[in-house]
Write a protein that binds this DNA or RNA. Structure first.
Lengths: 225, 225
DNA sequence: TTGTCCTAGTTTGTATACAATAGATAATTG
DNA sequence: CAATTATCTATTGTATACAAACTAGGACAA
């Protein structure tokens, strides 16, 4: 696994929490490589907005409640548009892909509630795959790129608050509505359904942000040298 | 001037044209520094989408007609939304800033047509400043970031086709309509006017893309070692 | 002539060394 | 005791060296 993937994964999984300072030497030791490729990875993550630079070095970026609110506004705009375009341009292949992604998502959720197996991360990943399949159907590569860069950020927070059965049923219903609108090419309904779905997600995340921010308010040190 | 700013400027001014390969040693010699900071800059530009990576090294990214079309769709969506939010949230200070930016833009244009002085680049820059002042009034930092990353790309092409008096009058009128809608807080009108303005711009750029692409179809070599 | 293989030369990717300085700790003073 | 300043250590930023591998060019064969 290259340095970029490694660091990003650990950030999204919360092992490198917001505000934590990441030193190059520490990461280099972890990965058994020199500082040079580490710097490359950090620069990329910084450009993507996952790290923020200090006078010297970088820290994992943290987000205020207002940040999350703004990001969700952007995401709603982009994904809502993508859904409307998907309703316009979707092919039979797109529909099949969307349905398959959604099926796998629901299967895993059922499996989770029945047995308690499977990780939260894997469910979030499958949810993302479903959303991506819709964006893909919009036939706009540039909006795809933008969304996949914008969407990762709130992921940091999701794993903290998630998962009760009620929320699961909601998302089940919402996905179904969106899929149907895209299938029958109801452009405005596709956009509206996606809007509602994402804003609903936002309203579940937002109340928890303060708490999370508190947990990590003290700049973290490196785990055991 | 740091490496990032230097390279980016030369790309946007067309001195490093699309598809041109940039070698690290060449840039290092130009700037009289070592390859290390050059690599940083190239990595950042690659992440931002201005360069595309090969198996080894990078080239200046080129855009097809379809790319430009998609980018304009995204830009219209983002700036249209920003205009509508600006209509909602603009303060008196925002209005003043927007008007001043537009005044300076128009003054420079008049000066250009009367005397032929001032560069095309400076006019484009002032136009961008005007657009930025609107996005700023939307009070969404994340949409600002996204737009400033998305908008630069088509700039590469603008300087090629621009400038006759008719297009100038159009933009004069469009700016005025947008400003007015934001001032009287007509949200939908602000969005619609911005949409129209940007799509109009797109329709003037698009027909010229093929020609430009042709000019640079042959991978360029470095200017004199 | 066209296609393929091989070779030579560039250019990148990674490691490492060294100097500059930011940030932490201790000391000092109001 | 708090707050400011000074010192010192840790970490970064830059340069440089070396090995790996891609690109381009030419030779050779079909």
């Amino acid at each position: 696994m290259d340095a970029y993937t490694y660091i990003k994964k650990r950030i999204l999984h919360g092992e490198f929490p917001p505000k934590m300072r990441l030193t190059e030497e520490y990461l280099a030791k972890q990965l058994q490589i020199s500082r040079t490729p580490i710097r490359e990875a950090l620069k990329q993550l910084e450009t993507e907005g996952l790290m923020f630079p200090m006078k010297r070095g970088v820290r994992v970026r943290h987000y205020t409640k207002e940040d999350i609110r703004q990001i969700y506004d952007v995401r709603t705009l982009l994904e809502g548009y993508a859904a409307s375009q998907a309703a316009l341009y979707r092919t039979r292949e797109n529909l099949a892909e969307m349905k398959e992604a959604n099926d796998r998502y629901e299967q895993t959720i059922n499996h989770y509630f029945q047995t308690g197996e499977t990780t939260v991360e894997s469910i979030l990943e499958l949810n993302q795959t479903f959303h991506k399949s819709i964006v893909k159907a919009s036939k706009n590569q540039h909006i795809m790129d933008l969304i996949s860069k914008t969407v990762v950020l709130p992921l940091i927070f999701r794993s903290f608050y998630w998962f009760n059965e009620e929320q699961m049923r909601d998302s089940h219903e919402a996905h179904h509505t969106i899929l149907h609108a895209i299938e029958v090419q109801d452009i405005e309904r596709a956009r509206a359904a996606m809007h509602e779905h994402i804003y609903h997600g936002r309203d579940q995340v937002l109340p928890h942000i303060e708490t999370i921010a508190e947990d990590y308010s003290i700049p973290h040190q490196h785990p055991s040298k």
